[in-house]
Amino acid sequence: MVPTLIGRIQTRLFLLATVGVVMTLLIMPIVPGTDAPLGDLYVTGLLVLAAVGILGIGWELIYHLLMQFRWEKDWPTSFGLLTLVPEGLLLYFLLRSGAIGFIDPIPSSTFWTHFTVVWVSMWLVANGPMRVPFIRWRFRGGRVL
């Protein structure tokens, strides 16, 4: 899928709400580095997804700007995976610094396990299986609506 700006944002929010939620529910019982009650972990995990969504709108604006320097106005597959690094780091430091007050402090191994599993799952789904139910999605720059 070669995204448009609105398509990028919609795809991100859609995948967070579907793949992200499912993966959070699956991964939280086995994440390392914490002995917090599962209910609290679920709340934290879902709040992290929300933060990825909200910060993501800003990130997508930056990606869209960077994409303009590419003749093809495309976004190679690897970029979708590698952006895990800056996005993860920013969110991690914001959480550590307490800038996002509504999320309780998370041990780093817990955060990175959850974040990476969710990100890679979303990336895998966006690079193929997403097209199975949604046959028009890839021709609309990633718009879901």
Binding site: P3, T4, E72, K73, R138, G141, G142
Partner: peptide, 11 residues
């Protein structure tokens, strides 16, 4: 260019 099949140029 790749974006004609679904990205910015198509739009």
């Amino acid at each position: 260019p790749k974006s004609v099949w679904g990205g910015q140029l198509k739009a």
